[in-house]
Nucleic acid binder design. Structure first.
Length: 414
RNA sequence: GUGGCUGUAGCUCAGUUGGUUAGAGCGCCUGGUUGUGGUCCAGGAGGUCGGGGGUUCAAGACCCCUCAGCCACCCCA
């Protein structure tokens, strides 16, 4: 830390950026509420174990991306890299098992020690939902519909594609995994270095490789469809027909995978071409094995998370803030009166900007800069008459308004 | 963690083969207007040239290291 600067990969949210983030979260929260997904908040740090056990010792997040530290009591704590683990932990430790299904919406910062690039930060923000305790495909459909509704409300659904895949049940996936290992091992000389590593850790990931040589090998790789159990196929068909019923379009992407064992059945991502290499905007899936993996009773779950920064990048111009009315006081008495009036008018529901000092010229200049719709001028002349001057800053027209009539007069600016 | 590109005023950027006091536009401040903004005119403030080291008579420019940003890989929101 040679210099006063933000930590790499972190970002201040100021002005319009802050407003845009808030607007996204608020829009999402409101829609989630309509679906019955109520707010829930878990700590931004947990015992390291919570993430280690849920995410698996071989995942990238655990092996190299966690912000882990020891607290003064000697416990190993970790800044949360994602939201699901904490909620799953709360389900177990908070006795929420008796209140299933749990439907929740969460938002907040996440932390991953990655190299920053477009759409990727070390501290970023997510919104997300979880539906825990529902094993039916209608739960998957509901979660996806909720995500689509939020994207639609933000005006960006049409810029995204919903990619959909099934990871089957554990048995199907184990057999498929074995088949892949056999196939890729036979072609190991043609694989990239990265994919050779993946072959050890997570063979399904090879299917998702961007490497041209890998792609050639992948073309003839075994397809999951041949290994899918009847139950898994039935489940996936039900999800698909559910989406069809409510008119949500999707593309099947057999290469869309999740590494960890507790994932099952549905995997989906809303992706876009608009964000460069980090095209995933909202992604999730079913994690029926998660809570059991953490030491709880077998409990099904499905959910997703979306990156607020990525959503914000797609939004472009934000809706302008409501135009305030500026109060400009001249002289001591005038300034005192603006303070009193500001309080009164704000309590009457108007957006008021108090221009603390500096006289009329400066006051009007500032009123203009903050995009005020009107300025209320109060000086000795006005005080003597018991009125104020209301200047429309667009037309330049001015009116002498008795203080008693002011609220009515200003109704035009609401 | 790996690779490529880039760091000059609050912002966007010029700055010639190394040459004297580092510039522009926008923004900001002041005045023209002792009670009238947005336009115009005049003036002004604002720079460790990301940081450190080196080469040189001389470095914003060249070399090395480092930090940061961007983009990509990896991975993911």
């Amino acid at each position: 830390m040679a210099k006063l600067q933000p930590v790499r990969g972190t970002h201040d949210l100021i002005g319009d950026d802050a407003r845009a983030h808030l607007a996204i979260v608020e829009a999402a929260r409101e829609i989630a509420d309509r679906y019955g997904y109520g707010p829930m908040s878990t700590p931004i740090f947990e015992f390291t174990d919570v993430f280690q056990r849920t995410l698996g010792d071989t995942s990238d997040i655990v092996t190299k991306e966690m912000y882990t530290f020891e607290d003064k009591g000697g416990d190993s704590l970790t800044l949360r890299p994602e939201g699901t683990a904490g909620i799953a932990r709360a389900v177990i430790s908070g006795g929420l098992r008796n209140e299933l299904p749990l439907k929740c919406f969460y938002t907040g910062p996440m932390f991953r020690h990655e190299r920053p690039q477009k759409g990727r930060l070390r501290q970023f923000h997510q919104i997300g939902v979880e539906l825990i305790g529902v094993a039916e495909p209608s739960g998957d459909v509901e979660a996806i519909a909720l995500g689509a509704d939020i994207l639609d409300a933000l005006g960006i659904l049409s810029e995204t594609t919903l990619e959909l895949n099934t990871l089957g049940d554990g048995e199907s996936r184990a057999r498929y995994r074995d088949a892949l290992v056999v196939y890729f091992t036979a072609h190991i000389d043609k694989l990239s270095d990265y994919s050779r590593e993946r072959l050890q850790r997570n063979p399904l990931r090879i299917l998702d490789s961007k490497n041209a040589d890998d792609r050639a090998v992948i073309t003839d790789a075994p397809v999951f469809d041949d290994y899918l159990s009847d139950d898994a196929r039935t489940f996936f068909d039900a999800v698909r027909s559910g989406l069809d019923t409510i008119g949500i379009a999707y593309t099947l992407n057999p290469r869309l995978v999740r590494g960890l064992d507790y994932y099952s059945h549905t995997a989906f991502e809303f992706t876009t071409e608009a964000l460069g290499a980090q095209g995933t905007v909202l992604a999730g899936g079913r994690y029926d094995g998660l809570i059991e993996t953490m030491g709880g009773p077998a409990t099904p779950g499905v959910g997703w998370a979306a990156g607020v920064e990525r959503l914000a990048m797609m939004l472009g111009e934000t809706a302008p803030a409501t135009r305030p009315i500026a109060l400009v006081g001249m002289g001591e008495d005038g300034e005192r009166e603006t303070v009193r009036l500001a309080h009164e008018l704000r309590r009457a529901g108007l957006a008021i900007e108090l221009l603390y000092k500096g006289g009329m010229k400066r006051g009007l200049k500032r009123a203009d800069r903050i995009n005020a719709a009107a300025a209320i001028l109060i000086g000795d002349d006005e005080l003597a008459k018991g009125s104020v001057t209301v200047r429309n800053l667009d037309s330049g027209e001015q009116a002498d308004v008795a203080i008693a009539d002011l609220t009515d007069h200003l109704a035009a600016y609401r």
